Amino acid sequence: MNDATFTFRVDEALKNAFTTATKSSDRNAAQVLRGFMRDYVRHQQEAAAHEAWFRRQVQAGIDAADAGDLISAETVEAEAAAWREAMRQRSASRG
């Protein structure tokens, strides 16, 4: 692993409080900051992957609609009404 130095400015009181907190958990500040950095990078990668997945899903829906692969509002409402009725009956049988 190639190490690099990362330098930044922080309020002295925050630095002192952070150092005290890391020492109380038996870790040094550099270890904790590296962990924060890894978590941040992982979070950003996951967010980017989700964004790409979401865009693919939206495009698939647009493509399906453009191709005429649609379900009518009446069909959707009829299926929803049937589902609601089934849930009502299920709830009544338990009650």
Rank of each mutant, 00 (worst) to 15 (best):
R84N: 12
R38N: 14
F8Y: 07
A48E: 14
Y40Q: 06
A4F: 07
K23F: 10
Q57W: 06
Y40G: 00
D39H: 08
V76F: 05
W53D: 13
R9T: 12
S91W: 08
E12T: 10
T75G: 01
R88N: 12
D66R: 15
Q59D: 15
E74F: 03
F36G: 06
T19G: 05
M87Y: 10
F8W: 04
S24F: 10
A52W: 02
A21Q: 15
D63N: 09
D63S: 06
Y40F: 08
A30F: 02
E46M: 09
A64L: 03
R88I: 08
D69K: 04
D63W: 03
H43Y: 14
Q45W: 05
S25G: 14
A81W: 08
R88D: 12
A48P: 03
E85V: 11
M37S: 11
S72T: 02
T5S: 12
N2L: 12
H43F: 13
A21M: 15
L70I: 12
G68Q: 01
D39K: 07
A21D: 15
G95W: 02
A52K: 10
R88W: 08
F18Y: 09
F8E: 04
A92L: 09
A64G: 03
Q44G: 09
K15H: 13
L14Y: 05
S91E: 12
R84G: 02
A67Y: 02
A52S: 09
A52Y: 04
N2R: 15
S25P: 03
E77R: 13
S24N: 15
R27Q: 15
S24V: 07
F54W: 06
T20G: 12
D39P: 01
W53N: 11
R9M: 10
R34H: 07
M87Q: 15
I71D: 05
R94L: 15
R90T: 11
N28H: 05
K23L: 14
D69N: 11
D39S: 10
M37T: 10
T7C: 10
A92P: 02
Q31T: 05
Q31C: 01
D39R: 07
Q59L: 14
W53K: 14
E79L: 05
H43C: 11
R38Q: 13
A17C: 08
